[in-house]
Write a protein that binds this DNA or RNA. Sequence first.
DNA 1: TGACTTAGTGTGCTTCTTACACTATAGTTC
DNA 2: GAACTATAGTGTAAGAAGCACACTAAGTCA
Lengths: 222, 222
Amino acid sequence: MPYTYDYPHPAVTTDIVIFTIRQDELKVLLIKRALPPFQGEWALPGGFVNLDESLEAGARRELEEETGVKDVYLEQLYTFGAPDRDPRERVITVAYYALIPSDKIELRAASDAEGVSWFGLQELPALAFDHAEILQAAHARLAAKLDYSTIAFQFMPKAFTLSELQQVYELILRGPVDKRNFRKRILGLNLIEDTGETRKTGAHRPAKLYRAVDPHRVDVIK
Amino acid sequence: MPYTYDYPHPAVTTDIVIFTIRQDELKVLLIKRALPPFQGEWALPGGFVNLDESLEAGARRELEEETGVKDVYLEQLYTFGAPDRDPRERVITVAYYALIPSDKIELRAASDAEGVSWFGLQELPALAFDHAEILQAAHARLAAKLDYSTIAFQFMPKAFTLSELQQVYELILRGPVDKRNFRKRILGLNLIEDTGETRKTGAHRPAKLYRAVDPHRVDVIK
DNA sequence: TGACTTAGTGTGCTTCTTACACTATAGTTC
DNA sequence: GAACTATAGTGTAAGAAGCACACTAAGTCA
């Protein structure tokens, strides 16, 4: 059933950079393309926008299809529209990025639909289209936002230790963070509270567990 | 001559929030719509993206058509795609904003094609589509960038005084800026240099004129 | 020459940032 | 059960940055 217009229209997709933290690494979800173009290569999840849904709704739909998760942090990143970025036709993609807490994953990706996999940012395969550029832009945005917002909490499970939170910062920023200054700063925000519980993870002192006061909220700070 | 696709495609436009500073006010260029929908109402300049041009090229084309200027600061702002934002068909718009130095305007807008006008942000008319939302997002981005980048220089003519630069900050941030601290900070950046000239503008001491060391460059600072 | 207007300049106080090292508490080993 | 090991948890001092603040300089004009 064809669709006809008086002048040419591009196709519009949403692509999503889905980040999570797993095995002490910042990881991204990629999909092995089953069809040409770039058949067999890895690409960001994404798809065409339905005409009756908003861009964000389209991105959330793709996100849920691939990971099974809802209600996670999702932010529009940038719109990529070089004329030749897709060899089939003109395709403009509105890129989003999503952050998934470590206790929410494995819902569908674990069902391990052959051809869906998490990759550490250090061990990325070659990517289809301009997806390497999109991924790099997403990582840059994420790292920048760590400095002036509370976005890092979006990676955390309901209860977490300060060491775990610090590790998130260190993984994304790719460098060490001073423990005392970090704890002073985070606790000073009054955005997390002591749960009263502790977590024992080995032959050492157990760590206090904290929870976010308002887990979905991302504030600009400083 | 119709264009046919196997599945529905949205239309894609670029809309541009064109800022400049004139008559001691931060102003935005608007166009009175000659055709429905929203005929007779004011709207941001913009238009459909040609299939063989990049998004930024499309935005620059629209910008030059309306103002005659090239080579000014232009940055992608956000992509707006609510399903009902245009009553005719699904239209997704990639919004940009541009900053025009005060010595570059009047090229075409001054030719005053009836229906093109600069508006101060305080005296905006009702806007067509979701353009009020786009404009507000552009102003918020601009104000935020003043704090952590050198974007303000993009408003300045080749030679300018520190008082003029300070006024740009005050207009965009909508509040007073301390003169001594401002001058200390700006001069400390080493991004402007004394031209050796002065400007006399009335019955008072003349002001030194400065120029940007690298006028097109926008750096992140602090 | 005195009045007026905008340009131009420095300091001290406060706040924030940063660097840095030891004690606490659990498990494990012998 | 004593010693060992590993991570959790804590405070301070020095330097940097931010902020508030008031007078002099150099023109024009009456």
